[in-house]
Nucleic acid binder design. Structure first.
Lengths: 326, 326
DNA sequence: TCGTCATATGAAAGCGCTTCCTATGGACAC
DNA sequence: GTGTCCATAGGAAGCGCTTTCATATGACGA
């Protein structure tokens, strides 16, 4: 079932079939009708490989995640897919987590797309630069700007400062930050903002490295709370850590929101259903994905050649876990 | 940067380059070394379109979701992507939700993959059959078997019966089921199992249609609870409805787990963090995705021609929202 | 020493499409 | 009636690769 079959059936040449189907050049009305009828009868669908070879483009773009578990990435993907497909592009996903050689996997993916969205914590910058230098349009999301690539991020600094100040207003004194600033620029930003916010009120928080999952949150929090002069506030780098920390706190009989304040980051679904509901920072995840798709498309279609760097605002969402509110 | 450049650089023909790179035919050791060196120096990566045109396959498969929001699908995708890429296949995702013409989108996707996983509530059976009849390997997930396609599902009947009996043991009398059995075979199965389980104890539940989201859960539950002889148990078709229902119940001062039992389905992350924690049914979502990838691969590689239909067990997870336990 | 055969390699066809270039025929002006 | 031009459509090249088929080279046995 190829374009030749259609041409034969309609009694025309393949060039005419192509023109009739894509409207790339004028075709007599009668001929077009004949061709389209043949297409319909035969149920012809152009081979994608053929088209993409001839056009030298893929009509697809890729998105590279660290992993797909957790609500954060799913939302980004959702926004991305929605917009990308509205723009007529298929979406290839790649999760680097647990992969022996992420860089190769991404290079491989690069060979089948017209552009790539790369999220933080997936592949090193030099791979992004290499691909970008090769002429592949790239948008990085939630990671620092890279030469030659566009970037989209959620700015957490303001919200982090606000969070620090809010906690100070609650009267906390010993604040522990759970997360690894040196491993992620995003976390570094949150840590910095929180420290600044608290600093205004003379509070100097400590930082304890922690992985981005619930179990780590529980473990690290348990360690912090076991000491004599335990913290009265745990600021966690994401919601999953915070939810884990709540478990640890309740384990030793602390009432979260009274005896101890615990905050997260991301506003995942579980955050508002937890009791006490989790004070956190809402990121516009869907928008992040949608914007990435849009920015990438501009670059692919050549509508824009100057780099674009977007920063989206985040919102502090105050709930009960940071202290009871009237 | 094509195979011709490499051939020229290595002083060989393009056929030799191809053979050296893919090992499809013997190449003298010295020649191979020369070719690989040229590949390395030039940073050559074979064009995917060219390869896939020549080989007449894509080394990619697709997965079709209703939408990607919510934790359920993200987990399925995770398992799928992991396994598919281990099997050397790229993954194309498509979300049909909110799309004017899902069938066309899926047909389109079908043209760029070697096989397709189709989840429930995306496209009608006849489209699946049509694609399958065209020779495209298809695996349906969480939807009834379709002629010519393999299928993977989670069997909810046993767990639903167990849930019904468990609720009866709690002494509930008026049970309302929130969900639309006629719209989804999965929901129909849950409804049937719950009714059977309760029926053994002489309880006849009612059913109220409800969409699969939190807001609908709140709205429908609010309606049900507003009447005089209100239900003392709400069995929800998924966790999001249940979490919404909890909100509605608390809104009017009911203590969930005491005054009223509420249960969900899926065991999403928020389920265990809700207070009271949600009694629900755990589905092996990741395994579902992984198994789908495997079954699809068998069919694509031709390792199996007989249809395969798998049903995975689900587990009742009893927590506090269905009644306080000792 | 010569013929035979295995082995390594290149030329070329073909995968299905797009598009440039060229040819044809009819409409129109003169 | 003839020449010109435009609209339409076909032929063919080319996209980058795999693989078949044919050929060259050298090893080996007779």
């Amino acid at each position: 079932m190829t374009i030749y079959d259609v041409a034969q059936r309609a009694g025309v040449g393949i060039a005419t079939v192509s023109r009739a189907m894509r409207g790339s050049a004028p075709v007599a009305e009668a001929t077009r009708a004949r061709v389209l009828a043949a297409v319909e009868e035969l149920g012809f669908r152009p081979s994608h490989a053929g088209t993409s070879l001839a056009e030298r483009k893929h009509a697809a773009n890729g998105i590279v995640f660290p992993d797909l578990s957790g609500p954060y990435y799913a939302e980004v993907l959702l926004g991305y897919e929605e917009t990308a497909s509205r723009l007529g592009r298929s979406v290839l996903v790649l999760a680097t987590h647990g992969r022996p050689d992420p860089a190769t996997a991404v290079r491989d993916l690069a060979g089948r797309v017209d552009g790539l969205v790369v999220l933080g914590r997936t592949i090193p910058d030099h791979v992004v630069e290499e691909l970008s230098a090769f002429g592949l349009p790239i948008v990085v999301v939630a990671r620092p700007e890279v030469d030659g690539a566009d970037s989209i991020r959620a700015d957490g600094l303001d919200a982090a400062r606000a969070l620090g100040e809010h906690l100070a207003a609650h009267g906390v004194r010993r604040v522990a930050f759970l997360g690894s600033p040196e491993e992620s620029p995003d976390v570094a930003e949150r840590w910095r903002g929180v420290r600044e916010g608290l600093g205004k009120h003379g509070i100097e928080p400590t930082v304890t490295p922690c992985h981005f999952d619930e179990a780590s949150g529980t473990r690290v929090a348990a360690g912090l709370l076991a000491v004599r002069e335990r913290p009265d506030a745990l600021v966690c780098a994401n919601d999953e850590i915070a939810l884990g920390a709540i478990v640890a706190a309740e384990e030793i009989g602390l009432r979260v929101g009274r005896d101890i304040a615990i905050t997260g980051w991301d506003d995942v679904m579980a955050a508002r259903h937890a009791r006490p509901a989790l004070t956190t920072v809402r990121q516009p995840m869907r928008t992040l994905g949608a914007l990435a798709a849009e920015v990438l498309d501009q670059r692919i279609t050549g509508n824009r050649t100057t780099p674009r760097h977007e920063s989206l605002a985040t919102d502090l969402v105050v709930r009960d876990s940071c202290g009871l509110h009237p």
